[in-house]
């Protein structure tokens, strides 16, 4: 099997990851590696993970998203997960997964606003902004 990768785009000081394929386990692990590498290389302050194309999120993918958010935080970047579909959200809640510590937004625009807001707050010295 060829080495698939999920593309990571740079948007100013943010990174945008658009997950567009059926996420299999290896791909999720690769994304985790690639993204942490890029946060450091691009000195990114924020990461947007757009999952609006994902038809399901199971506990494995959920854990991967949580891990990325935690790792990014250690690397001084905020993570916002955007575009989760209603059916996926309902299922995740039923599954028992609430993604604590992961910030969410309805779409990429709102996610960008959210990241900009928290970076401004940080610049004013308010420290880490809790949701």
């Amino acid at each position: 099997m060829t080495m698939e990768r999920i593309p990571i785009l740079k948007m100013g000081s943010f990174l945008l990851v658009t997950v567009q394929v059926d996420m299999h386990d290896r791909l999720a692990m690769t994304l985790q590696d690639d993204l942490t590498g890029r946060i450091v290389k691009d000195r990114a302050h924020g990461v947007l993970i757009d999952i609006s194309s994902l038809e399901i999120v199971d506990s494995f993918i959920g854990r991967m998203i949580g891990n990325i958010a935690s790792m990014a935080r250690v690397l001084d970047a905020e993570t916002v997960v955007v575009g989760m579909r209603p059916a996926v959200a309902i299922t995740l809640v039923e599954l028992g997964l609430s993604l604590p510590g992961v910030r969410t937004a309805l779409n990429v625009d709102k996610g960008v606003e959210m990241l900009k807001g928290s970076i401004e707050d940080r610049a004013r010295g308010n420290g880490h902004v809790a949701r």
Binding site: E55, I56, V57, D58, P86, A87, V88, I90, T91, E94, L95
Partner: peptide
């Protein structure tokens, strides 16, 4: 929603 639940 039912599809998503069984698939998950």
């Amino acid at each position: 929603v039912d599809q998503t639940k069984i698939v998950t």
